[in-house]
């Protein structure tokens, strides 16, 4: 992949207790990954899959790993690698003694931004995350959704080129979620690379260009949304009016016909689709829509994880 800003090679991390030399829990078990600039990268996996550990290794929050990790070509332990990175952790706890505005000044300052730069940036950013009104209230007085919004703002205040978002819409109401989705897409359009870790698969499906599905510290599958949601072989038809003779009209074409009023589904091979349309038209049936059905991401994810764990997936 060209213009890669993040890469990991054969990354392994084992959590061991103090003085434990062997054994332990393998959170990452040989992960290799490369992320290009300006994409939204989704991380999926059941609890304990190693998604958060992967993010934390890249942010130097977890150390003592094996293999190679590079962010902007630098090791995570190099503070310069984090200068251009924003992070919204899952279940974050922001300093309650600060107001929203002071919080953005603190995190912007810690990322090396000057007070003048921050003065220019903070108000527009507060507006983008819908926190202008509550900007001068203490963070400890914020609701869960407000904390999430201001948390997102702190991840963006220093204008990072790479943003890790761990459950960004957690606790946010539907309107807020839509705003955050819009913000994420806006960031992508401005060339920011986003790493999205979410349990809301619909959200991932709507926003991500590429998705990695992980389990037990390994990558099970990686690809675009289209690649991860293959066609099912079932085609959905909508016709002008209900017909009782569809069995007869479509006899010998496809399988598993299911009729429901003016709609029906039929299992078809790609070559059989034209044949089915021809039969319907020859019988004088008006066709309103033809929709080849895909697996959605949730089905695809569950199928994949179940096939490796033998069921019992918790998300």
């Amino acid at each position: 992949m060209t213009d890669s800003i993040l890469s990991v090679r054969d990354l392994r991390k084992v959590y061991r207790k103090a003085f434990q030399r062997r054994g332990g829990i393998a959170a990452l078990d040989g992960i290799s990954l490369e992320v290009g600039r300006g994409t939204i990268f989704g991380l999926l996996g059941p609890n304990g899959a190693g998604k958060t550990t992967l993010l934390k290794v890249l942010l130097d929050l977890v150390r003592g790993y094996e293999g190679e990790a590079r962010v902007f070509g630098l090791a995570p332990s190099d503070p310069r690698s984090r200068r251009r990175v924003g992070y919204l952790p899952e279940a974050h706890r922001l300093p309650g003694h600060l107001t929203g505005r002071q919080l953005l000044r603190l995190f912007g300052g810690l990322s090396g931004c000057s007070p003048q730069e921050l003065e220019r940036r903070i108000d527009p950013l507060l507006e983008r995350v819908g926190m202008t009104v509550a900007a001068d209230r203490k963070v400890k007085e914020y609701s869960k959704g407000m904390q999430q919004r201001i948390g997102l703002a702190q991840a963006l205040v220093h204008q990072p080129e790479l943003v890790f978002l761990d459950e960004p819409t957690d606790g946010v109401d539907p309107v807020g979620r839509a705003q955050i989705r819009e913000l994420v897409l806006e960031l992508k359009r401005s060339g920011v690379t986003l790493f999205l870790n979410s349990h809301l698969l619909l959200e991932v499906e709507l926003m991500c260009d590429r998705v990695v599905i992980m389990d037990k510290g390994r990558i099970l599958r990686e690809g675009t949304i289209a690649e991860l949601t293959p066609k099912t072989g079932v085609v959905h038809f909508e016709i002008g009016a209900p017909r009782d003779d569809l069995d007869r009209v479509l006899a010998g074409v496809g399988r598993n016909l299911k009729v429901e009023g003016a709609r029906f589904e039929l299992g078809l091979d790609p070559a059989e689709v034209d044949q089915a349309i021809d039969r319907l038209r020859a019988a004088g049936i008006s066709i309103r829509a033809v929709d080849p059905r895909h697996l959605n991401l949730e089905q695809s994810f569950l199928d994949l994880v179940r096939s490796t764990t033998g069921g019992g997936v918790s998300r």
Binding site: K56, L59, D60, L61, P79, R80, S81, R82, R83, V85, Y87, P89, A91, H92, R93, L94, P95, F107, L110, S111, G112, G151, Q154
Partner: peptide, 13 residues
């Protein structure tokens, strides 16, 4: 504490 440390220590400091 978890949550607080993540936000703070992920900064370039």
């Amino acid at each position: 504490e978890k949550g607080a440390a993540d936000t703070l220590f992920s900064r370039p400091v």
